[in-house]
Simulated scan of single mutants.
Amino acid sequence: MILDRRHALAGMIAASLPWPARVEAMTATKPFAAVALQLAARSVERQPDRKGASAQMIAMIEEIGVKLRSSAIFIQQYGGTPVRLAVLPEYVLTSYPGRISIPDFAEKAALDIDGPEYDALGKVAQAQKLFIAGNAYERDPNFPGLYFQTSFVVAPNGEVVLRYRRLNSMFAPTPHDVWSKYLDIYGIDGVFPVARTEIGNLAAIASEEILYPEIARAHALRGAEIFVHSSSEIGSPLATPKQIARRARAFENIAYVVSANTGGIEATAMPLASADGNSSIIDYKGNMLAESNSGETFTAFADIDLNALRAQRRKPGMTNFLARQRLELFAPIYGGTAPHPADSLIEGGKIKVPDRDHFLRVQEQAIERLAKEGLI
């Protein structure tokens, strides 16, 4: 029974997922529109319990469905191209956990893999014939007391066809913190999943992970053509690190980036517009196709031309960065001792539920070791 459950969950997370993730390499694909829907995240902090938090999330999904439908209608009327992909911001249903303990937040606000929130999102995707990408905190029965920040894609048939767990986080558990057990259950396909769909090969990058080129490159080397990027970050008319990184990840991997930022965060002590603005769509040459200003808006939308992207990837030349990769050059460096250790939440073969300061202590130890070795 345990093995059956593990294999079932692994199948949900791995790249070899049910339709349409099993669709093989595509022939010519009609251009379609994608939208990075900039919405305010809504904190569940004031909800008394899980029942209240879930009810708030379900109600918000219904609101998102209304906003998606009206946005898609306008975009098609404006540009003539139907919307097939919508990306939602980071943790839009709950906001960030703050200082709530990890097990308490897991119990109150983290979604279940087969929970009602995913069912509600699936109904929106079915009704509107959309691929909906988003980001939420999620519980996994293999890791009780923990949660993972998960980026997902729901297909037009209502199924979750991509489930990617954030690999680099400052104050929250990641698969790398339980690495040996996570790999045993899900394998590398569950770490870097790519969904092969009728609108292209989709992969997810979560929030600040856009600053880590290895994550995007790993997905690209597994076939990703479109990066869905859910974020909650400071918007600015000046070039921010994430704005620069999005463009870099696009051109160095010859991939589209569809990046949705929050349009503020409601029901917290933080000023509403602290994480607001600059949702964007960037093409495979690093060109900004559309970028939002502040507030809730659908104005980051653009056409996606996969035929042009694929032609670029198959064309010899100096700008074909994927074909020119010489990975053997870097294997000895990456294969050395990692600055940040794996399995920091496994002790004596068992999962350890940490306090939030645990992650800061691990980073401090990594910095100390790098300094002793003269590397920083």
Rank of each mutant, 00 (worst) to 15 (best):
M1D: 03
I2K: 14
L3V: 07
H7Y: 12
A10L: 01
M12L: 15
I13Y: 08
M26Q: 15
A28E: 15
P31H: 10
A33I: 04
Q38S: 05
Q38C: 04
L39E: 10
A41W: 12
P48M: 05
P48F: 03
K51T: 02
A53N: 00
A53V: 02
I58C: 00
M60N: 10
I61K: 02
I61N: 01
I61H: 02
I61M: 04
E63T: 03
G65F: 06
V66P: 07
R69N: 14
S71F: 07
A72R: 14
G80V: 03
T81D: 08
L93P: 08
L93R: 03
G98Q: 06
I102F: 03
P103M: 00
D104M: 06
F105R: 05
E107P: 09
A109L: 01
D112C: 08
I113M: 06
I113T: 05
D114E: 13
P116A: 03
G122D: 03
A127Q: 15
Q128T: 08
F131G: 13
D140C: 12
F143W: 03
P144Q: 01
P144H: 03
G145S: 02
S151N: 15
S151T: 13
L162H: 07
L167Y: 08
L167A: 13
S169P: 10
S169W: 03
P175A: 00
P175F: 01
V178G: 00
W179E: 04
W179G: 02
S180R: 12
I185W: 07
G187F: 03
I188T: 14
D189M: 07
E198Q: 14
N201C: 11
L202K: 01
L202D: 03
L211E: 15
P213L: 09
E214Y: 10
E214Q: 14
I215V: 15
H219D: 06
L221C: 14
L221T: 07
R222K: 15
V228D: 12
S230M: 12
I234G: 04
I234D: 11
S236M: 04
P237N: 01
A239E: 12
P241N: 02
P241I: 01
F251N: 10
E252H: 11
I254P: 00
G263K: 07
G264A: 05
G264V: 04
E266Q: 14
T268H: 05
A269P: 10
A273I: 09
S274I: 09
A275H: 13
A275G: 09
D276I: 05
N278P: 06
N278C: 08
S279I: 01
S280G: 09
Y284T: 01
K285F: 10
K285R: 14
M288G: 06
S292L: 03
G295F: 01
E296C: 01
F301I: 00
D305E: 12
R310M: 02
R313P: 00
G317H: 00
M318D: 14
N320I: 01
N320D: 04
F330M: 13
P332M: 13
P332G: 09
T337C: 08
T337F: 09
P339D: 13
L345Y: 02
I346M: 07
G348Q: 05
F359L: 02
F359Q: 00
L360C: 09
A366S: 15
R369L: 14
L370G: 11
K372P: 10
G374R: 01
L375T: 09
